[in-house]
Amino acid sequence: MSTSREGDRDRDEEGRARNARPRDGLGRPLPHGAAGVDRQPEGVVRTAAQSVAEAQALLDSGRPFHAHEVFEDAWKSGPESERGLWRALAQTAVGLTHAARGNATGGARLLRRGADGLVEWQGAGQGDAPAGLDTAGLVRWAQELAGEVERSAEAVDAAAVTPRLT
């Protein structure tokens, strides 16, 4: 993506707003010219197994914001019948991002929203989740972490509390 600066906004070739600032491991923008972590490319079409493997590697390395981007790609490019699943996974990753940034309220809220979206994938009507996802375990993890985040109100170490997706 090539960007140009128009006033204070980064824009792509079509004029759409794009934030070209580097980001840290939790997705927070850094000043222009600062060393950041590599961003996830947008719009990548992956198989369910590829999405899960890539997101797990990002979660394990303490980069839940970047994992959310992988889940978002799956949500937007996957089968309509799976979009709620990928959206819920993206919400849990964003919840973990907020919790790691020290935003207990937003973190807990998004973790619970993601857990609620995953409940329907615990076998009720939808069958097994793709790529061996452990939706029941992810629901438990998100609900428990939401409670811990609210009780402590302190930032969590994203890599230390990351879930096992399968």
Rank of each mutant, 00 (worst) to 15 (best):
V45F: 02
A49H: 07
S77F: 05
D60P: 07
Q56H: 13
E69F: 04
Q56D: 09
S61G: 12
E80V: 14
Q56E: 11
V70N: 05
G78A: 13
R39F: 02
V45Y: 03
S61H: 07
A48P: 04
D60C: 10
K76N: 11
R63E: 04
R39Y: 02
G36A: 12
L85I: 00
E72W: 06
W75A: 06
V45R: 14
G78C: 09
L58E: 11
A57I: 02
E82Y: 11
A57V: 04
V37N: 08
E72P: 09
E80N: 15
E80W: 14
R46F: 02
P41N: 05
R46D: 03
E80Q: 15
Q50Y: 04
E80G: 15
E80Y: 15
A35Y: 06
G33Q: 15
D73K: 09
D38L: 11
A74V: 04
W75D: 03
H68I: 00
R46K: 09
W86I: 07
L59N: 08
G78H: 09
T47W: 01
G36P: 04
L59G: 09
K76L: 13
F71S: 07
A35S: 13
W86D: 02
W86Y: 10
A35P: 10
A53D: 14
P41K: 11
D73M: 11
F71Q: 02
Q50V: 03
F65C: 06
L85D: 00
A34V: 08
L58D: 05
D38E: 13
Q40N: 01
G33S: 14
R46M: 05
G84N: 12
Q40C: 01
E69N: 08
R83E: 13
G84Q: 10
G43P: 01
E42T: 07
V37C: 09
A67I: 00
P64W: 08
A74W: 00
A74N: 08
H66A: 12
G62A: 06
V70M: 05
E42Y: 05
A74Y: 01
A74P: 04
Q40I: 02
E80C: 14
A57K: 14
D73A: 12
A35R: 15
G84L: 07
A49L: 04
E72Y: 09
G62V: 03
D73S: 10
D73R: 08
G36W: 03
A55P: 00
G62S: 09
T47K: 01
D60M: 08
G62L: 04
G36E: 06
W86Q: 10
S81D: 11
